[in-house]
Structures are given as structure tokens and as C-alpha cells.
Write a protein that binds this DNA or RNA. Structure first.
Lengths: 65, 65
DNA sequence: TAAAAATGTAAACTATATTTGTCATATAGT
DNA sequence: ACTATATGACAAATATAGTTTACATTTTTA
């Protein structure tokens, strides 16, 4: 799984903490997702989709592994 | 969370078991998702997106609760 | 109408997402 | 230099997702 959360966040000029608050998770959750330490739930992905105003597939991509 | 997996599956004329095999999960996983017993991971949602050839947002929607 | 295929559901279990707490580092402004 | 802000990372604990097994019910088809 690859993601471009960091880019989307930069477009909106949000800090990790601000984004986290907007979707109701901890800052560490955002940080861990950006660092590819884990993949978020579909609910979280859809909330990010709302904030970014883009479909989930735009910022989450499956990789071979 | 609402989903229209059952409809997408019908469009492709797949059984729960066939869809399950295509994305590498158990039949019960598909059944449980269709029955709204739980929401799948983003990885699974993206795999469904591949099979259905539609963005995740097309068949998964956030609800108020 | 009987057999086979498809679906629904539940309990126990395993895997993973998320929180909380904490520390380190880097940067910008005073 | 000092302070505040933003980020990266990690470990332990908790919550939730997903698997397996098993059995029941419905639907399809021969």
C-alpha cells in the first residue's frame, strides 16, 4: 500500500494534528499512516476522502506486496 | 457505513464464494460485509475496487452513525 | 421432490488498527 | 539562547477487523 496523504495534507496546508482533529483520530495515527507503518480502516479512508474532497483511490494505491 | 457490494457482485454475476476467491478472503468475510456486520480494511476495499472496476467511494458510503 | 449450490449466522480465535504516553529532533519566531 | 510548533518514532494497551469452523436456511436445478 502506498499513499499520498502527506501531499494532500500539504495542498490543504494542514498539520498532522489539524488533520487528525478534523477526522477524529490521534496525531500518531496520521503520522503512522504517512510513514506507511499501517493502513487505516475504510471508515478512516472515507473520512480522509471527505476532507481532501477526492476519491479514496486517488491517495491510496495497492502495491504488489 | 453502507455498501452496495451485493449489487456490484450481481452486476458481475458472481457468488459470494467466487468474489471471495478473487480477492483472497473467506466467503464469510464477503457475507459479513454485505450484512453490514463489519467494514473491511482499506486493502480489501481497494481489491474490491479492482474487481468491480469502480472507485471505493462508489460502493462504500459513510453514514451518520 | 431430492440433491446441490448459495446464502445467513454465530462463536472462538488471530491479526491488525488505533490510542495513549513518551522521547527525540528540527524549525521558526522572540 | 529560549520557547513553541511540527514531525518522526516506538512500546504497551485496547478496540476492532478478519479467519476458521460449523451448522442452518433458502434457492436453484436436475
Amino acid at each position: 500500500m502506498d499513499n499520498t496523504i502527506k501531499v494532500e495534507r500539504a495542498i490543504l496546508d494542514l498539520t498532522q494534528d489539524e488533520l487528525a482533529k478534523r477526522i477524529g483520530v490521534s496525531r500518531q495515527t496520521i503520522n503512522s499512516i504517512e510513514a506507511n507503518r499501517y493502513v487505516p480502516s475504510t471508515v478512516l479512508a472515507l473520512k480522509l476522502s471527505e476532507v481532501f474532497n477526492k476519491p479514496v483511490n486517488d491517495f491510496f494505491k495497492l502495491t504488489d506486496d
